[in-house]
Deep mutational scan, measured.
Amino acid sequence: QTVVIGDTTYHLNNPEAAQQIAKELAKKYGLKVVISGNTIKLK
């Protein structure tokens, strides 16, 4: 699972954790979560 935040890319072996982290950050910073395949992007 790949999480992309701005110009930073994180690789996590746990998809659920990756999605949870993405949701928390999106909520905290008012970002939009875009999931395509096994890549999660925060914009």
Rank of each mutant, 00 (worst) to 15 (best):
L25G: 00
T9F: 10
T9R: 12
N14F: 10
Q19C: 14
Y29V: 06
K41D: 04
K27G: 04
I35A: 04
H11N: 08
V33R: 00
Q19F: 15
T9L: 08
K28F: 08
Y10N: 05
K27S: 08
A22M: 11
K32F: 07
K32E: 12
L12P: 05
T2Q: 08
V4Q: 11
S36R: 06
K23W: 11
Q20M: 11
G6A: 05
Q19S: 08
D7A: 12
A17G: 03
L25R: 00
E24W: 15
K43V: 15
I5R: 01
Y10V: 12
K28L: 11
Q19W: 14
N14C: 14
I35Q: 05
N14S: 14
T8L: 13
Y10S: 03
K28H: 05
T39C: 14
T2R: 10
K41W: 15
V33W: 03
A22R: 02
E24R: 14
E24N: 11
I5D: 02
T9V: 13
V33H: 00
D7H: 14
T8Y: 15
K32L: 13
L31K: 03
L42Y: 01
A18Y: 08
T2G: 05
T2L: 12
G37V: 03
A22L: 11
V33L: 12
Q1I: 15
V3T: 02
K43E: 15
D7W: 15
Q20K: 13
E24K: 13
E24F: 15
V4G: 02
N13W: 11
L25F: 04
K41G: 03
K32V: 15
K28G: 00
Q19P: 01
T39A: 04
I5Y: 05
Y10E: 03
L12C: 15
P15Y: 12
L42H: 01
I40M: 01
A22G: 02
G37N: 07
K23T: 09
A17Y: 11
I5E: 02
A17S: 09
E16L: 10
K23D: 10
P15N: 07
V34R: 01
G6K: 04
A18R: 02
K23M: 12
V34S: 06
Q1L: 15
K41N: 09
Y10G: 03
E16Y: 09
Y29M: 05
N13A: 13
K32R: 06
I5Q: 01
K32N: 09
V33K: 00
L31H: 06
P15L: 13
I40L: 03
S36K: 10
N13C: 14
N14L: 11
T2F: 13
Y29P: 05
V33I: 14
K28I: 08
Q1S: 14
K28Y: 11
S36D: 12
E24I: 15
H11F: 13
Y10T: 02
E24S: 12
V3F: 06
T9Y: 10
N38K: 08
I21P: 00
E16C: 10
A18K: 01
A17C: 14
Q1Y: 15
